[in-house]
Amino acid sequence: MTALQSTSAKRRQWQIAACIALACATLPSCATQKADRLTTGSIPSASLSKPVDLMTAVELAGAEKSMGLAYDRNPKDRTAGLNYANILRMNGKNTQALAVMQQVAIANPTDRDVLAAYGKAQAAAGQLEQALATIGRAQTPDRPDWRLYSAEGAVLDQLGRSDEARQKYRLALDTQPKEPSVMSNLGMSYVLSGDLKTAETYLRSASEQSTADSRVRQNLALVVGLQGRFAEAEQIARRELTESQSEANVTYLRSMLSQQNAWAKLSDKDRKPSQATN
């Protein structure tokens, strides 16, 4: 393998790991579902019994069915469309989510939230350049939305335009200082370029914010694990979760690290101290 091929392959490995971590609300759902590549946004519905990021696969399927029925009753309804497209993306049905958002965007062509969700759906379906254009239409210079800056940064990162992506994240932080989801995205941007120490600095700061959610801590767990501190990563991955969710997180974390032939090395590192004392 040439030096250029080696660099390209290494970058692709970081992209695979980072995009998965960037995408997921929690690792348990990632273990069974395809990822939504953007962290911004949530299901705007008071009818759910629990937060979406704490739902099991069965509960997500039930939510998809009920939201689908609401959408079928009125496909032009803004809230029904946003809810349904979001839950579809949570369940990995990105092509269907995009089709739903196309209809919602036609019915609500100037709605910023709709355009933002449409852009997210395009990105999740792999239409990255189209997503940038859609998110750009949603943004207005006189009333900039930090969520749109962050979403735009996430798309730019996927396009390999990391410098531009980080500019967007910093614009988001200018508007919304210390916002954990933006700092998390910024941290994962550095993962894409292999700068794990800088990534950990941003992710640790993000995780310390009172409004940080589970996905921020799981991104931190991944970055710590990628640096070979798996015991610490496992401890982070288990925080504030039920026993079953914790085990799913740890299992998924191990599978991600093993994709880069790292798990055996990390396990060996964890064993060496105890072996030395025998």
Rank of each mutant, 00 (worst) to 15 (best):
G160L: 11
Q139A: 06
R137K: 14
L257I: 06
W146V: 05
Y149T: 00
R161I: 12
L226H: 03
S255I: 11
L148D: 01
R239W: 08
T242P: 07
A165Q: 08
L253S: 04
A154D: 13
E152N: 13
T211C: 09
T134S: 02
Q227K: 10
G160A: 09
A233D: 09
N185C: 12
A233L: 11
L128W: 14
L257F: 00
A221H: 08
N219A: 15
L156S: 06
V182W: 09
Q209R: 06
Q139P: 00
T201G: 13
K178C: 01
T251H: 12
R239V: 06
S207V: 02
L241V: 15
Q122L: 15
Q245L: 02
S207R: 01
S189F: 04
A154P: 03
R204D: 08
E208V: 03
T242N: 06
M183N: 03
D163P: 10
I135E: 01
Q139I: 03
A165D: 10
Q176S: 15
R215K: 08
S205R: 13
Q122V: 07
E179N: 15
T211R: 15
T140Y: 12
E234Y: 10
S193A: 11
Y202G: 03
V182S: 00
A221D: 03
Q209G: 03
K197H: 11
A172G: 12
S214L: 11
M183Q: 13
V182R: 00
S184M: 12
M188E: 07
L148E: 07
Q130F: 09
M183T: 01
Q122Y: 07
A123T: 08
G126Y: 05
A138T: 01
L128E: 08
S205T: 15
S150Q: 11
P141R: 08
Q122P: 02
S207P: 01
R215P: 00
N219W: 06
S189E: 10
E234W: 05
L253D: 05
E247C: 02
A124T: 11
Q209M: 13
Q235V: 10
A248L: 06
A154E: 15
T211D: 14
Q167C: 12
Q176F: 14
L156M: 13
Q167T: 15
V250N: 04
T198G: 08
P141D: 02
K197A: 13
S244N: 11
E243L: 14
G136C: 06
I135S: 00
G153S: 07
T140A: 15
L203D: 04
L226I: 09
T242H: 01
P141W: 06
S246H: 07
G187L: 02
A199V: 07
T251S: 14
V155F: 08
T242I: 11
R217L: 04
P144W: 02
N219P: 10
V216M: 00
L156W: 09
F230I: 14
L226V: 12
R204Q: 12
D145E: 10
L203K: 02
Q127T: 13
T134K: 04
T211W: 11
E232Y: 03
E152D: 12
Q122N: 07
L203I: 01
T198R: 13
